[in-house]
Write a protein that binds this DNA or RNA. Sequence first.
DNA 1: ATGCCGTGGAAACCACGA
Length: 258
Amino acid sequence: MKIATYNVNGVNGRLPVLLRWLEESAPDVVCLQELKAPQEKFPEQAILDAGYKAIWHGQKSWNGVAILSKDGDIEEVHRALPGDDEDTQSRFIEANVNGIRLVCLYLPNGNPAPGPKFDYKLDWFKRLQLHSKELLSLDIPVVLAGDFNVMPAEIDVYKPERWVNDALFRPETRAAFKELAEQGWTDAIRKLYPEEIIYTFWDYFRNAYGRNAGLRIDHFLLSRHFDERLRAAGVDRHVRGWEKTSDHAPVWIELGEG
DNA sequence: ATGCCGTGGAAACCACGA
């Protein structure tokens, strides 16, 4: 089973790119972030025509997440990260699909830091830690996938010294990601490629993609149930070179049977 | 060091992103 995560940066503006990539890559399950579309403007028919059922949590202008599935039904479990009824940003959706509990998340950016946006990011992280711990206690196969807006280590940044004060790389942010991972989650890309420079995002300007000035911020965290099931993982980085493309590239994992 | 590009929505600019 192939699972992918892709921050599309506008699901309608990006529809041709998304459909082209879906056909080429043919993932079984997909997590999308940054739909930038209200609930009723999600391109459900085009996605159905491409062979995918979908559930989504839209929002006008910003955020928005979706889970797509080619074969198995999608049984929604949550459409908000528990822990704050006041949080109206659509950054989280969780479902049972193909025998897996799948969390699709779009963690807040947090800039400028320090400030209220950074506080929101750290608070969101805390809630995610609490919820993730709960998920681990269920002792079922769980995948956390999405745009975490964190570069976990220096190897994940083209010029780490320039990012130390950025909300995506500040010590508090990296510590929060480390604390989460240490609950018992495996960073799929790093498990298979512990030493390689692998990026999932390149800025639109200053030819960042051409210079490979990238960041690794889109991640798969796997519960221990997948220790023997992770077969492959990668980034479809060529998609970042397409016309009218997102600033993120799709990331994927391939899982075998238990 | 930086929103230099790009999207969406509202209103011919602004908020936001990483």
